[in-house]
Design a protein around this nucleic acid. Structure first.
Lengths: 342, 342
DNA sequence: TTGTACGCGTTATCAT
DNA sequence: ATGATAACGCGTACAA
């Protein structure tokens, strides 16, 4: 049965457990013959070492963890692959763990650190405010990768961050729209009452308006639909459809995510309006669909690959004492599509 | 430091380790006062039990694992969420583990079973051929969720499967296209040399042609582009663009995934052709983008939510001895969009 | 080169 | 209700 342990293997081979252990862990000092015999019976018996027992005795482990908040965030999946790849290249194994929306990521992390003897952690997405003390107690270096810009409210020497300055990028996009002649620009998606990426991008939008002498009009904030899942095309479609019914005049809409933009685009089309002639559409994130949509959607591309690479590099540098904690902000790339220019 | 153990807590409270353990695990027989004191110091000390040690001592665990092959497969992310939800509702915790493309999923699974004392496993995606013996040795029930149809080559009483009959669905789509008047139908994506979902959908395509008296023409098989990642819009665009340059006359293209279809649609558009008037486009999977694309893309929707629900239900039924292993095949839903009908 | 014995942190089984 | 102690399965000094 599945109850076979290292002792059993040792007995069957007429050797001690340490010899088996050494063989399994690739230690050099072991007779080739006995090694062969051991490996053979291990194979035959389908023996698999128990990792829990392994981790218990150890202090190191050469493994890091990726903690993902909101496993369904499709933006993260590519980043995970890159990080996994880089980690393995450095001889590290990686533990992927999804954190529930209402779980405390630090608690989860601490548990994992103890259990797996982690050497470091990369947090993907959502990160609440924690005290420095609590963060330091994690005991291992970690990097926070967030599409939300990290402000001063986070202590900056306890861990590293890799991010995009959402406010600046939102401003960039809005400035671009203004430059191409738009004055009545709606913004689709932000919830003024939360303080996530949405409100940061909204802040950038406001800044752009102000610096261009355009009055901010909160009628032009189109919140996400409450009855639909957030940040989905479906939501963008519903929210935009409702807004269009109100008859408020706009010449462009800046959606705070590409998925919302895509849904909104269809809503505009279904309302009998043309993109960009009647309403220009812009998104945020840079997902592939923007490029292939007709018309292609103007967006801000987040350099996910580079961000993933950097987060791994920083983490391993800190682990290896080759570097200090740092805070890297990646620029987004404005990709102009057919949805804003004729 | 992070070195604090259950013993320390016991000492600090002037009690034995067992009392602490009982408190932490919610056992009833423990004095409310001491319990309070223990919980308090646990809180104050930021004590976190070591899961490895926990798992070692235990024999049960009330946890299952989801093993995902190809973490980046976006179709799976929604399924993961629903399974996690259902599991938690039944008081189970779930371990998410990604399996590398060249790893042996059964080996990974066995390791995990031992380490975590798993009660069951749900495999998402890719599953190679394994001997019954090896499968049985897993020691816990498992469900294989695959978008590929499970054929007889899998033993049917050792585990459960939840799937979509890709060949039948591919045939369904092709039949639909034929019924709407198409005779020269290209199929985009299948690699005749592998035996994954692609070839199954291709088989269905061929069956439909045959039963409708249309000669199969392998010139109409458009393979994915070799220099581009599989099953991406980019790939669909590249492959379709190249095909169009050859000047082979077709009236419809059936892409074996929606992502490929979306890329192909843009390629057709860029070639100055109209959808569906010049070339009709159909996809497979039922991703949201199909609905919001202009024109909306005809596709086969896989009932991912239902499949996830069922896989959890089946697994827990087998775990609870309330049911036997079973093999459920879900029908795909033909969703007719604007890309195939004027 | 190989075997013995202890420790890792926790839970479970006994007593008390 | 509570405490002592033996597992749990493995790695690793240390001894041989």
């Amino acid at each position: 049965m599945a109850k076979i342990t290292i002792k059993d293997i040792a007995k069957m081979c007429g050797v001690g457990v340490s010899t088996v252990s050494r063989t399994l862990n690739g230690h050099p000092d072991v007779n080739p013959e006995t090694r062969a015999k051991i490996l053979e019976t291990v194979e035959k018996m389908n023996y698999v070492p128990n990792n829990s027992a392994r981790n218990l005795g150890r202090n190191d482990s050469a493994s890091i963890a990726i903690l993902v908040k909101g496993a369904s965030n499709t933006l993260f999946s590519s980043m995970i692959s890159t990080i996994e790849y880089d980690a393995k290249e450095r001889g590290y194994s990686v533990v992927l763990h999804s954190v529930g929306f209402y779980e405390d990521e630090i608690d989860v992390a601490r548990e994992l650190v103890k259990e797996k003897r982690l050497r470091g952690i990369i947090f993907l997405g959502g990160f609440s405010l924690h005290s420095d003390e609590k963060l330091k107690e994690l005991g291992v270096p970690f990097v926070l990768v967030t599409t939300g810009y990290v402000t001063e409210r986070f202590s900056r020497n306890v861990y590293s961050t890799v991010s995009v300055d959402d406010a600046a990028e939102g401003e960039k996009m809005t400035n671009y729209l203004i430059k191409t002649g738009h004055r009545k620009i709606a913004i689709l998606g932000p919830d003024p009452h939360d303080n996530s990426v949405g409100s940061l991008r909204l802040a950038g939008y406001k800044r752009a308006l102000t610096s261009n002498g355009i009055d901010f009009n909160d009628k032009l904030i189109i919140p996400m639909d409450h009855d639909t899942a957030d940040y989905t095309m479906e939501n963008g479609y519903a929210a935009m459809s409702n807004f269009l019914k109100e008859g408020i005049k706009i010449s462009a809409v800046f959606a705070i995510s590409d998925t919302l933009a895509l849904g909104a685009a269809r809503a505009i089309y279904d309302a009998g309006l043309r993109i960009p002639e009647d309403i220009a559409v812009a998104g945020f994130d840079g997902i592939p669909a923007c490029k292939y949509y007709v018309p292609s959607i103007t967006t801000i591309r987040q350099p996910l690959y580079d961000m993933a690479k950097e987060s791994a590099r920083i983490l391993f540098d800190v682990i290896d004492k080759k570097g200090e904690h740092m805070h890297e902000v990646f620029p987004g790339e404005l990709i102009i599509g057919e949805s804003t220019e004729v």
